[in-house]
Design a protein around this nucleic acid. Sequence first.
DNA 1: AAATGGAGTTGATATAAATCAATCCATAAA
DNA 2: TTTATGGATTGATTTATATCAACTCCATTT
Lengths: 234, 234
Amino acid sequence: MKKKNDSEEIVSLVSLWNNFGHLTAAQLEMILKNSYNAGFRPGEVIVKQGSPASSVVFISDGLVKVYMEGSGEKNIILRLAAPGKPVLDPGLFISRRNTLTVTAVSRTEVNFVSTEILQRLSGENSSFSMGILKELSQQMFLVQNKLASVAGKRMAGRLADTLLYLSEDIFKKNEFDIVLSRKEIGEMSNMAKECVVRVLNELEEEGAVKTDSSRIIILNPDKLREISDQTSWM
Amino acid sequence: MKKKNDSEEIVSLVSLWNNFGHLTAAQLEMILKNSYNAGFRPGEVIVKQGSPASSVVFISDGLVKVYMEGSGEKNIILRLAAPGKPVLDPGLFISRRNTLTVTAVSRTEVNFVSTEILQRLSGENSSFSMGILKELSQQMFLVQNKLASVAGKRMAGRLADTLLYLSEDIFKKNEFDIVLSRKEIGEMSNMAKECVVRVLNELEEEGAVKTDSSRIIILNPDKLREISDQTSWM
DNA sequence: AAATGGAGTTGATATAAATCAATCCATAAA
DNA sequence: TTTATGGATTGATTTATATCAACTCCATTT
């Protein structure tokens, strides 16, 4: 990787998160001095649940999954994260322990920024601070929605939610290569991998999606939304 | 209710939320001017999901439930809230719509504080701003735990979680009068009211709790924790 | 080329939990 | 006192979903 000069790096900081645009050059400088980069291969752990929370993760390239590790081997994947936003763990601001595990789904470049610094800057710059609050709220909202899905819907609805999430929030296309295994799709939708296969077939029969092993095509998003909306107890 | 002078009211603001202690007299004054009180009877709606989010709710007396309304009639109760903390809705900082409904469980006195003002003060005072961030993180952590419980545990584990939550976080006693119906306990644990009754009996047979209609006694919290820890897929 | 192993798939079975139905309260209203 | 009314309770039944077992289809190793 080629060495960059400061102004180049400052530009790249803003590309990590729009909210960095609120900071002064001096403040950005401060961040640069207190951050470091690392690369990860698929499957590698970037942040481990339970470990001390000393820094916030920014993804400069690649895709990661953010999940809770249950005892046993069943995980609950809360969301995926791509470049452009930080991965905020609620533990950062309270217990100072990570409450979530983050691992690379594809080859990933990550930027760790010291939590201390972010907090200090948050105190110095109210727009920046507001940006953190908004991002945290966004991520909390996502968890709320996941809870609503898991607690209130049947398999088809939950899987529909996951597919819509992938297509609208992550890949931003109707057709995409799902990098996740059926088991992982199951961990996003709280269902067994076998059921993912079966329900995926059902959705295909209804003409909502088309799947070809790792490729997924959303043929009819409205149909998916309709399936997502039908609750068990009607 | 007797009229209070300003200094009395400022003291009472701090009792609504410790975090107000970070503010100057002038800032507290500002809050007083932009807040108003209201009383609610059991069952009355304090904040309605979907409505414009213009203010943050502080409870000065009573108990409320905070929940997501599903289509149909099944709700998901995220948590209860008693005096001492604000009810932060993630929608406050993003969509400006409430994503949650808040209703009174017992007779409740509430203080509405304008979101605008809180945001302004958050920009002026970094300790205060950090307090908001911490509180939001706390509430997000709670939702995460609820998700883990609902997605990963069987009925007994989920109900145990709810009982521990009530005893440790809300009533702070081993013995308390549950103001909620069996149906509502079910909405906290994602199970049907009939199942609440059955599993409650199981827990009683195991000597973990004792129930007498509305009274609940936690006889053995460790036993409850043990039940909470056993996952389905061991 | 053979062998290994893992993901994906399919069908059969087991099980947790919801739903349904009936009954039993307690409290409030007439 | 009788009559409603709604929550709580109990048992029977149904249903959604997990689990188990077997098999296919790759990709990788030997």
